[in-house]
Structures are given as C-alpha cells and as structure tokens.
C-alpha cells in the first residue's frame, strides 16, 4: 500500500515538472518580458540591466530551477496587466470558480447517476427512451450555446434568474462566497447547469452502460437466484459494482469542469480564474497564463491521485499485498 502511494506521488511530481517546463517556456518563447515591461523607448543599457536583474542572462537550467523554487512557494511574479502579484489575483478569483465547479459537479454526479440507474433499470420504458434522446442533444450542443439559451429562457423571457455576475457575496475569512446570500444562490444556478450539463450527460450514459453490463453478470443472476430483494440486488450489488469505474471517470471530470469553466465564466461574466485567464490571453499577460496552466495541471494531478487512492480503497481486488500476506 505504502509503496503504491509513494509510486503514485512520484509520478504526480514528474507530471508537474513537465508542466512547469511548458509554463516556463511560455516566458521564453511567447513575447519578450523586457520589451513588455519597459516599452519601446528604453535604452539598450537599461534593457540589459533589467535582463540581468531578472536573471534572464543566467543559464536556462538555473532559471528553470529558480522558477520552480518560486512557484513551489507560491510566487508566480507580477501580472503585466494588473501590476499585482499573480498568486494574489488567482487566490481572489479561485473561490468563485471552485464554488461553481463544485456545485455543477455535484449536480452532474447526482443527476447523472440517478438518471443512469433509472434508464438502466427501466430499459424498455418510454421515459428512458425520452431521457436518452434528450441527453444526445445535451452532448452535442456546445456549452456557450446552452448558456445563451438558458439566459434567453430563464433570465430574459421568464426573468426568474440573473443572467450574469455572482450576486451579493460574503467574506468568510479569506474565502469570498456567494452561497450565503439569496442573490448569490440565484446567480449560480444558470452557470452551474450550463457547466454541468455535458458532464451530467456523460456520467448518465456511462452509469447506464456500466449498470447494464453489471446486471448481465453471473453474480447478479446468482444474487437473484438467492432470493435477494430487487432493492438489494439493484442498489446493494449492481450499483456498487457500477460505481467503481464511474468514480474514476467522475473524479477526473471534476478537473475538466474547472478547466471548461473558462467558457461558462465568459458567457455569464462570472468573476473566476477562467475569466481572468481569458483576459490575460488578450493582453499576453504571461505570468498569469503560466500560473493558470500550473494551477489547472495541479488540480488535475491531485484529483487523479485522490481518485486512484479512492479506487484502491473501494475495490478489494486491488489490495493484493493483503491477499499475498494470507497465503
């Protein structure tokens, strides 16, 4: 077990190093930071002095090591555009993105699993057919279109929900939350649905396929032959076996949700890191872009790691060392 965990952690660190290299190269290959910072009129000597001060004349490997050391301590430099520490900027925007991702991830999981199980158990029902057909639309419509449609129906026509922003927010320590005010909660509904719809459809189709597969297995037939109730067979035996692979995919989806939040945040003018990133791209604000890249990678890597360990905890077949110890 410990060896497995260690191995996975080493793998994760390696992945992060590769990403750090990519994000570091942004500085070298996309635009010239000295030109960006000093403008056109600075003298050649001033430029050289700055290059020296920024360490740009050091060997690349030394620069990279310095970059990693600073990144590890949370220092990603100063935003070209906003002249604020990048870390500060990201931290102030992160709660908005995380709240949105968490709410839409939860919605996607709950409804995805619920509908997936329902359509698997009632395979021949007309309602299942309808759900499956509608879900095809969910998969094929692009996110921004879904967002715009939702805004049109619920914000413009029905005027039930706000169409942009986060509503009123409250500071809880360093965390700025919108979930504690009525306007904040109303504001998150449409973006959360927009962001989660695709993932929900995905989870639903996965759960359905996986569940149908499990329902055909011998151990389900044997469970029925032992007279266990439908409830025990469907939810105790079949669902648990279905969820093992689903956990993996769903966990990984959480990473994509955060990454895909870029589009949703833009459509709904949601003040999260995704919107920050889009603005940075427009201004070629390299430090912010590089930090965003690292952040997303870190989230993916951590989720991956947690999912793997969870999977390991849920599925006894993977706990081989315990079995080996017995024989």
């Amino acid at each position: 077990m410990i060896a497995y965990v260690l191995r996975r952690i080493v793998q994760s660190v390696l992945v992060m190093l590769v990403v750090a290299l990519v994000s570091f190269s942004l500085f070298r290959f996309v635009g010239d930071p000295v030109a960006t910072m000093m403008g056109q009129e600075a003298s050649q000597a001033d430029r050289e002095a700055l290059r020296d001060r920024l360490g740009l004349n050091d060997p690349v490997i030394v620069q990279f090591a310095g970059y990693i050391a600073r990144a590890a301590s949370g220092d990603f430099g100063i935003s070209y555009r906003l002249q604020q520490p990048v870390m500060e900027l990201i931290l102030s925007r992160l709660p908005a993105t995380l709240e949105l991702a968490l709410i839409s991830g939860t919605l996607a999981f709950v409804f995805g699993v619920g509908l997936g199980v329902y359509t698997a158990l009632n395979r021949r029902g007309w309602l299942s057919g309808t759900i499956m057909t509608v879900s095809l639309v969910g998969v094929s419509l692009p996110t921004f279109l879904i967002g715009v449609l939702l805004i049109w129906v619920f914000a413009v026509e029905l005027q039930w929900l706000p169409s942009f922003g986060r509503g009123e927010t409250v500071d809880v320590g360093p965390w700025r939350t919108g979930l504690l005010t009525p306007s904040g909660r109303a504001s998150i509904v449409l973006p959360a649905i927009t962001l989660g719809l695709y993932q929900m459809t995905l989870i639903m189709r996965l759960v359905r396929a996986e569940m149908l597969e499990v329902l055909r297995t011998d151990y389900i037939k044997f469970a029925r032959a032992r007279g266990l109730s439908d409830r025990a067979v469907n939810f105790g035996h079949a669902l648990k076996n279905t969820l093992v692979p689903v956990i993996t995919i769903t966990g990984l989806q959480l990473g994509s949700i955060i990454a895909f939040a870029i589009i949703t945040e833009t459509v709904f003018q949601w003040p999260g890191v995704g919107a920050l990133f889009i603005n940075s791209v427009q201004f070629v604000d390299i430090p912010v872009m590089a930090a965003y890249l690292m952040l997303i990678a870190l989230i993916f890597v951590v989720i991956n790691l947690v999912v793997d360990l969870l999977y390991y905890a849920v599925d006894p077949r993977l706990r081989l060392d315990r079995a080996a110890a017995r024989h």
């Binding site: 297995t217 011998d218 151990y219 044997f222 469970a223 035996h237 076996n241 599925d315 006894p316 077949r317």
Partner: peptide
C-alpha cells in the same frame, strides 16, 4: 462458474 458467481466487492 464459481469465479463469476460471487460479487467481488463483498
């Protein structure tokens, strides 16, 4: 088939 008759997770 006894290999597949038992639920592997219980």
């Amino acid at each position: 088939d006894p290999l597949t008759s038992l639920n592997p997770l219980y």
